[in-house]
Structure formats: structure tokens, C-alpha cells
Write a protein that binds this DNA or RNA. Sequence first.
RNA 1: AAUCGUUGCU
Length: 242
Amino acid sequence: SVLVTSVVEGYCKAGKPKEAMNVISFFSLKPNIFVYNSFISMLCADGDMVDASLMFQEMFESGLLPDCVSYTTMIGGYCKDPDMKRAFQYFGKMLKCGIKPTVTTHTLLIDACCRSEDLEMAECLFQKMKTEGLVPDIVTYNTIINGYGKKGNLHKAFMLVDMMRSAGISPDVTTYNIIIDSLIKRGFTNEAKDILDELVRRGISPDMVTFTSIIDGLSKKGDFEEAFLVWFYMSEHDVKPD
RNA sequence: AAUCGUUGCU
């Protein structure tokens, strides 16, 4: 069993989840739900939704009922694909099975809707989750702020920052990075700098993402001197790498 | 203990 574990681990680390699962079934071992979810997650990360859905089905047929994480993982896989039709199919399936989608499930779908430029659907999910008694967290807010920001609707993005504050959630470095990147990509360089100042004033440390976002934006604008100054500022201060 | 969601460049 120690041997099996290490062989399975080896296959997983080598990025071969299918082979690892074959080893498990060869020894007629019954994976539990955590093992199944981990494997489904690996396949989804690989973009292999064919095998992910096969494994989801296999889990079902072996008598293990997929849980919220199983469904959310599958939805996440299809959102990345992106195959929103199937993503929403799984969303419907989990509702039908009486499994309550979580904040994570909704955030995942909101993010995918934003990426497919369907801000209406994103907004709809955002409203719906609240009526179901779910409380959007900082990731949900950052996700939808990013959706509006990237689309150039900065007014709405700032409104959502206010909304999250009223909900008692303080914007974090990711929130600021999203706003700064959205501004700079639309050419609002000075406004982006103001936000950078605000971030520092609030005691948040800018990170690598903050600066690469600014430097990239300035370079694409052809403002290499400014870009260099920011780079210089960055090397003078201790910027946390990821 | 171990499985799902958000920001830049590449």
C-alpha cells in the first residue's frame, strides 16, 4: 500500500493522472471522494474535459455521490474551456440533485461570463447568489470589478469598490491591481498613479503584479522614461515576488 | 492533513 501510494504520487507529479488512476483500479482499490475530486481537478487543469467527465461519471457509477466540490470543479473546467453550455448544464444538475452551489461556484461562473463579455449574465448571477443567501466575498467582488474594468466600464468598477466597502470588505492588493491595470490599459495613466498612491496610503504593499502592470502599460504607450522610473522605484523598494 | 474561484507580463 505504501508502494501503491508512491507509484500513484509519482504519476501525479509527472502530470499523468490517468495512469495514476489505472494503478488504483488495477489493485481494485476504491478511491474516496477526495481522491476522485483531486483527479478530476487535475484533468480539468489539463483541459482534458473528456476524461474529467468520464471520471465524474465513473465516480457516480461506483456509488459515490459527487459533492459540491466535484460539481464546482467540473464547472470550473468547462468555464476555462470555455464551454459555457456544459458549465451551466452541470450547474443545473447540481441544483437538481439538491446540492447547493457555493460562493466559489458562483464566482467561477461570474468570471467566465465576464470573459465571454456577457456582463449581463455575470450581473444576474451576482444578484441571484445574494437572493439565495450567499454572501459575495472579496474574490467575487474582485472578479466582477475586473469584468467591468477590463471592458472599460470604470464607473461601474468604482461603484462596486464602494459596494464592497459598504459590505464591510476592504479592497486588497488584487482589487487595486485590477483597477490600476484597467485604468492604464485605457490610457488613464495619471489616474492609475493616483490609485497607486492611495494603495500605499492605505498601508497596502504593491507587489510584482502592480508594477509589471504599470510598466507594461507605459511601455505599450511608448512612455519608456516613465516606465524606467517605475522600474527604478520598484528596485529601490522591496517588492514582494509571488 | 489532502480536492474548487479573482489581478500583470511571458
